[in-house]
Design a protein around this nucleic acid. Structure first.
Lengths: 246, 246
DNA sequence: GTGGTCACTGAGAGGGAGCTCAGAGGTTCG
DNA sequence: CGAACCTCTGAGCTCCCTCTCAGTGACCAC
């Protein structure tokens, strides 16, 4: 079976082969980071720096999804979107936009079932959105039963943004939610503070690893409150989420 | 089963295959947006930019419905309609017209059981009209029991434009109605303000996401007034409509 | 023990997201 | 032509969320 670098089963195409994703961004550093994160998911990834290259690559790769910067050196996102749909009508598109471009030009994009993320974003968010898109488009085989994560008696419904422990609803802030999602997608694995910072916080966040401790503390108060703890500290290494064992 | 990108069951042809729709508009951006929205419904969609192309496409696709701009570069919509009826006599047509199009011509349209929408329109409206047309023409299999949406003790009769909560009638303005319809067609799913703007407001609306908050506020006063709330805010993510859980 | 490092958590500042009121402009209808 | 209604803008306000700082506690090496 096709697996991720982390050992998790990968989200695959219906025939079991890896999902194919095209990353289009003119900032090579950013493209590199994205590509890495998506490869980590076990997907097949290609990069392109402008609209023309993107189209050539798309014709070869026939990607299931495209991560597409709205601002490109040669064309604009809408034109690329149109051309992409001609190459592969059922392709999913995740747009990357600057914060100030949002309202006007993005209008209409999410209408087609596509989605967007504003810069600066966290990798966890990009991956989650992509997974959501692919799943809804029926391009991904359901490895788990739907958009629901389960670790022990802890469950997370990503679409409804609902988290429960032992059936009890837990309210989380956006950052808490994203942190817990990352933990739940990597259960029984020790995650370093650096890893967590890289995935959950946006790439331009200059802050110290100290925030991670803080948010772990918040999560514990809500998730482990008065119960057998699931979030454990591994001194000098990081944190790990484990189902309760007896 | 055939499903929409949103995960809902799709409205299908009687034999279970996807409904086939042809979009005819000379504005490529608009056509793209429409196509996306209809694909999102799980339908099979083709595009055409003028009358001649439309006819060729229609002969191949044999569409169940056509979304047809009245103003086309080569011919006018009515001529296309006549030719379409020769290709497929029972085709449903949804006309797109400018606000100032002459009244009497429109009157002629609806006489044939077809329908029209004036520009600028909202995607939610286009989709709803199309669903209505197809349902009435008996081309769509009724996946749900008729034109009635139900979430918890909240019900909406789309054709009668009647909304009730716990049996009590609720009066809504047009925009409020459309917003609630969108929420009710996506229960338990968090919808972002951008998604809501794209679907419920017309495509040329430049306004800020602030309007969504305003209309959510209006809806709450009418739908949730003095009752257990069904409309919930998910900070940093959007809004979600959920049946009351006790 | 003792010193040093790593981790946890309380308090609080600052910023931003969301809610609501009041009112202007437009449209519809009588 | 006026009244009623609807839609959207602007502004003020509140509350929540995020992060910084600082103090305390836990763990380890010697």
């Amino acid at each position: 079976m096709n697996t991720t670098r982390s050992g998790r089963p990968a989200l695959t195409r219906p025939d079991g082969t890896p999902l194919r994703v095209l990353v289009v961004d003119d900032d090579p550093d950013l493209a590199e980071v994205l590509t890495g994160a998506l490869r980590y998911e076990g997907w097949e990834v290609r990069e392109a720096g402008d609209g023309a290259t993107a189209l050539t690559a798309a014709r070869e790769l026939l990607p299931d999804a495209v991560v597409l910067d709205v601002m490109l050196p040669d064309t604009d996102g809408f034109a690329v979107l149109r051309s992409l749909h001609q190459v592969k009508p059922d392709v999913c598109v995740l747009f990357l936009t600057a914060r100030d471009t949002v309202e006007d030009r993005i209008a209409g994009i999410t209408a087609g079932g596509d989605d967007y993320v504003t810069k600066p974003f966290s990798l966890e968010e990009v991956v989650a959105r992509l997974r959501g898109l692919l799943r809804r488009a029926g391009m991904a085989r359901q490895q788990e039963d739907g958009p629901r994560l389960v670790v022990g008696d802890l469950t997370m419904d990503e679409e409804a943004r609902e988290v429960t422990r032992a059936g009890e609803l837990i309210e989380l802030s956006p950052t808490e939610f994203e942190l817990l999602r990352f933990l739940m997608r990597n259960p029984r694995r020790v995650l370093s503070k650096a890893q967590i910072l890289d995935r959950v916080w946006s790439y331009d966040f200059g802050g110290r690893a100290h925030v991670v401790e803080l948010y772990i503390s918040y999560l514990r108060k809500k998730v482990d409150a008065g119960r057998e703890p699931m979030i454990h500290t591994v001194r000098g290494a990081g944190y790990v989420l484990k189902p309760v064992t007896r």
